[in-house]
Design a protein around this nucleic acid. Sequence first.
DNA 1: CTAATTCCTAGTAAATCTATAGAATTTACA
DNA 2: TGTAAATTCTATAGATTTACTAGGAATTAG
Lengths: 137, 137
Amino acid sequence: MLSHKAKYALKALLYLAEQDENHISRTIEIAEGANIPKKFLEQILLDLKRGRFVSSKQGKFGGYYLIRSKNDITLAEVHRLFDGAIALLPCASLNFYEPCSDCKTEEECSLRHGLMIIRDETLKAMQGITIASLVKK
Amino acid sequence: MLSHKAKYALKALLYLAEQDENHISRTIEIAEGANIPKKFLEQILLDLKRGRFVSSKQGKFGGYYLIRSKNDITLAEVHRLFDGAIALLPCASLNFYEPCSDCKTEEECSLRHGLMIIRDETLKAMQGITIASLVKK
DNA sequence: CTAATTCCTAGTAAATCTATAGAATTTACA
DNA sequence: TGTAAATTCTATAGATTTACTAGGAATTAG
């Protein structure tokens, strides 16, 4: 399941994607428009900025705006930024790989192979859902 | 990601699936065989029993055994028993549906449609992985 | 200079997760 | 009928994570 943070991030991106080109959105505007707690959203927008999904203008009349095409941002990327691995266990993850601590030494995790198959399918599906595809809906 | 509980449950089912027909496995045997904390495993086996994946024989020489075909038990079912919904949000879930609390009233969640597509693909993949397919690996 | 905004660092309450403890119950069998 | 070996049940503890909130520093426009 998605964390609230990831869900809010998606909704914030959706909000930004719906605005006119060149429009800069203040945090409070996004918070009210997308129904997200404002102080929590502040953190999320900073995370989105660090993840290079959005950029900001500071000071008076500042705010946030998308710096990537909404056709290009996939659910997989947002998931990875906020909720980490898409695979069901670290040992089956592409981007967050860690060996299982509880697997017998030197032996491969008995679940790994199956979980990699699931990861591949889930990833493919998540890469198919973009911010643009959600806006259009 | 899977919880430890779900991971241990899968490993326990795998262990049981590898035993001879009619063999009854004690908790301690499964715990050592699959490298799972014994007391934690006790709870997990009771959950698996309540979920009708296994049954038990009490008392001396008691233990646990599968009551469903290993070809029939899918990762999707185990996930649902221990970790709940497969969908990324409750509003996109088949078995654990709940409306989004933060979506504007009467309006549908903007994420729901995309998340249902992902759920369908993930579910299909998870239904394709059985205990038997993991054992064979 | 001031108002409005982003940016940064903490902190906190509640929930959840990962177990562990201890005792009650059930059963096989000598 | 007593005992050992097992499941079953209830409670709880500690750690971690989640979902925020607080407060102020830094930045910018006019």
